[in-house]
Design a protein around this nucleic acid. Structure first.
Lengths: 117, 117
DNA sequence: CGAAATTGCGCAATAG
DNA sequence: GCTATTGCGCAATTTC
């Protein structure tokens, strides 16, 4: 789509005289203005969206940090306790190794429910 | 055919002859091009940034979800175990209530789990 | 003050 | 056939 600049054509390329021509030009100029306003709005919205997302991101990162910390602590606690009383057999089907691993990718897919009460 | 609103009158505002004038015009046209390319690049980068942030966000949300799940499970586990052996006294100064609360904001009730059984 | 950069605006081609 | 979009040039203004 080669967009030529002003071609010095004098002929009736797209308009005939000054009557209909002017009207068309004016209408197009209005359309151009509308389009540009729209374009700017869109750009601004995109910029705003970046800021929103950055904020959400910060919140989420803090949340991850907090949760990771808590989880780490609880794991230590649990392991320390379990080392004293090795009765983890109660939690037979549970993937403790997986859950207690430092990694954070446990699915907790246990069907069996350890008798709670 | 109207030539750019500017008629034959010499405009001492910005041009003088056809010599220096043309050079100035050409240089400005180049500058305009540069500026517009730059502007478009910036816009595009902003759009890209939105996509990047959206992806990061999704990842973080999943992470939060996983961590929350793990944490909830571990808390249940810990509480179930602690109800059998009330030796939480080993962790004297620790805010277990706070940590073990389902939420990350515990009330100011500092009761020591009197062991109902 | 001087040159480049940015901006508003209109034109024309063309996409939809 | 009309509006919307876009590259381009001009000129005013801004920025450096």
């Amino acid at each position: 789509m080669p967009r030529r600049g002003r071609v010095k054509k004098e002929g009736p390329e797209s308009g005939e005289d000054s009557d209909e021509y002017r009207k068309r030009r004016d209408r197009n100029n209005l359309a151009v203005k509308r389009s540009r306003v729209k374009s700017k709005q869109k750009t601004q919205e995109t910029v705003n969206r970046v800021n929103e997302l950055r904020n959400e991101n910060t919140v989420l990162e803090e949340k991850v940090k907090t949760l990771t910390k808590e989880l780490g602590f609880l794991k230590e606690l649990f392991l320390a306790h379990a080392s004293n009383n090795v009765d983890a057999s109660k939690y037979e089907g549970i993937n403790l190794q997986k859950l207690l691993a430092d990694d954070s990718s446990a699915s907790t897919s246990n069907d069996k429910n350890p008798g709670t009460t």
